[in-house]
Design a protein around this nucleic acid. Structure first.
Lengths: 144, 144
DNA sequence: TTACATGCAAACTGTTTGCAAATAT
DNA sequence: ATATTTGCAAACAGTTTGCATGTAA
């Protein structure tokens, strides 16, 4: 759990009012390394932590954080959205059997041979998702 | 528009009963090169082609086709699903401004430096989406 | 004639929104 | 005091499903 003051700083820096709800969510989100979390999951964790935050507020907060650059949204399956606390350039494993996202460690991974971007466009970012089948990988940490 | 008999063959080969609806959708889907289409779009095209197919059937058919290996589903944004008539290994541009998918041409693009897949897993497939910002790329073909 | 496919409308899921009450500045 | 944020419930979009009807084999 992120120290309260760090959460406060984070919000202030992002230009977001440090409300009770945002502070709680910030502490949960950024308190334990890189995480990939859905709105429902975050809501559940907030409840478990006795931080009373409505689901709507969780959604709004995740969107605000994303807009503020604190989070990055990762689209995997059509149904739910994952929010990644790691906003730097990096790619993902997706464990199909568990519906879980994992950072790909190591920075030697890269995409090569990209042709020119069409017309007047420029590359915003490159999403790479390595879909893993089978196994029950990742020592099943209770949260991620 | 794919010739009727080709559509018939395609369905038979896939082990799907060649119903009127499936035949129409097959003709629309596979009649003009590689396409990236949503259920709503396909439904609209079917209507325009006087092929009366309910939206539910369009959804069911797209799923059946995907399961049968005739289509590939591409997850982009959380909201809608795209179905790709190109089931071979290839990557995509995503035009953020238009919400449109484009194949990346050229087969020299590749992902290198991948670490070992965790545990007992194996790579199912690798999705690469190059997100393009701005411009109004792609000569705006009326369909794709 | 029998198993499978379709259409409709209702159900469902994840997400967003309108508005009154609560809160940060 | 004022603008922002919250919570709730209702709205919403995309998708799936149950069931009676229709159709391919």
């Amino acid at each position: 759990m992120l120290p309260f003051c760090d959460a406060l700083d984070k919000l202030r820096t992002a230009g977001l009012r440090p409300t009770r709800q945002r502070l709680s969510l910030t502490q949960i989100l950024f308190g334990q390394g890189n995480r990939h979390i859905t709105a429902e999951e975050l809501h559940a964790e907030a409840q478990a932590a006795k931080a009373d935050v409505s689901l709507a507020t969780v959604y709004n907060t995740l969107n605000q954080f994303t807009e503020a650059g604190l989070l990055r949204e990762v689209a995997i399956e059509g149904d739910r959205s994952y929010f990644d606390t790691n906003t730097s350039n990096h790619f993902h494993y997706y464990l199909e059997s568990e519906g879980r996202l994992l950072d790909i460690e190591g920075d030697d991974i890269q995409v090569i041979g990209l042709p020119q971007a069409p017309d007047g466009t420029e590359i915003d970012r490159i999403d790479v998702i390595v879909r893993l089948r089978g196994g029950n990988a990742g020592k099943r940490p209770e949260t991620t």
